[in-house]
Amino acid sequence: MEIAELQDKIFAFVEAAKGKKKLKEKDIIKGVSAEQSMQPDEVKKAMRAMIDVGRLMYSYGGGASSVEIPSEEYLREKGLIK
């Protein structure tokens, strides 16, 4: 699978959990690698690349860290959108 396609799958996976469950990195890596029959390391690498450019972001709440889709406010603050 092309990395861009995998990243779309990862994004869809995170989007599906939005508002329902706070996903840890591990949940995403495990979930997507099972769903797509891929190596966890590949998923991790693709996900990290998304975090590096702000397509996903690390969040913190309820005493633990999670991965989420960034808000517009976050993207604006990072200068990624105007």
């Binding site: 702000g54 690390y58 709440g61 808000s71 990072k78």
Partner: peptide, 17 residues
């Protein structure tokens, strides 16, 4: 308030909101 979602791009820690 409780810590919020702040940080530097790419990192998931090091800044406490």
């Amino acid at each position: 308030k409780h810590g919020g979602i702040v940080g530097v791009l790419g990192y998931g820690g090091g800044v406490i909101g």
